[in-house]
Amino acid sequence: MTYILQTHHLTKTFQGKEVISNVNMRVKKGEIYGFLGPNGAGKTTVMRMLMNLIKPTSGEINMFGQRVTNQSYELLKRIGCIIEYPVFYDKLTAKENLDLHCEYMGYYDKKAIDEALDLVNLHNVDDKAVKDFSLGMKQRLGIARAIITKPELLILDEPINGLDPVGIKELRNLFQLLSKEYGITLLISSHILGEIELMADTVGVISEGRLVEEVSMESIRNKNTNYIEIRTNDSKKAALVLENSLNISNYKIIDPSMIRIYETEVSQHEVSKSLILQDVSIHSINVKNHSLEDYFLTLINGGGKIA
């Protein structure tokens, strides 16, 4: 497996306070890596370190197989990014901004400017200064700027901030297109789980400066099966019934009045029928979905406890 980006024990201290602790991140080539964490967890700080804006206190960063140092300027040619929020030369127009960007990047294919504006669906902005743009438009322009030079790695910090639902969907499709058609690796941060869930291949969860989990979406999906939750007056007796008459062994007694069945084959109807026949009273019976959200919330809260 080739990793386009790796961090080893990445740590950053600001004024004696450790804001990023021992982060080991691995981003595979070609994937969409969702960088998930609540506000203030350290997503932006990590991204700034990746872009060489701030320097790690300890640990190291490897990109494209090279170690990043103070002098790693050439690497930046291969990356497109938005950190925090997109900044522009406000008084210039969108095209002038993109034009400047290309010049600074040493990229001279001027056709790319229109293509990029097309891709993010930003039209009729020719004579407008960027200061008159809405946040959503700036966000789109920021993405256009990030992708204009066809980078190998895109680092996008909260790219869907300030966009309406239609815009969010458009961009999600764009990110997927960039990943699949252009083979660009994307590192996208967000505090909105739903978004990450919809597009990421791998998720890195950061909480209070620590990477508490890095896992492929596929494996999370497999982990999170449905279960039947039964409230009863006697869960021990209920458990016996489940084992003896339904041959279910994959269950868990949560407390004396609650039991959860993780067997996917068995139907709610069968369970209730058997329990009633054995005279176990049922207060309620529900099929529950242990959602991704629960999973991440547990992780983030758990991470908080460690810190």
């Binding site: 872009m51 060489n52 804006l53 990014c81 950190i83 900044v87 522009f88 406000d90 990047m105």
Partner: peptide
């Protein structure tokens, strides 16, 4: 102040 310096410092230029 406008953080466009950040932008400049993310270019492949010393």
């Amino acid at each position: 102040k406008n953080k466009t310096m950040h932008l400049l410092f993310m270019y492949p230029i010393k």
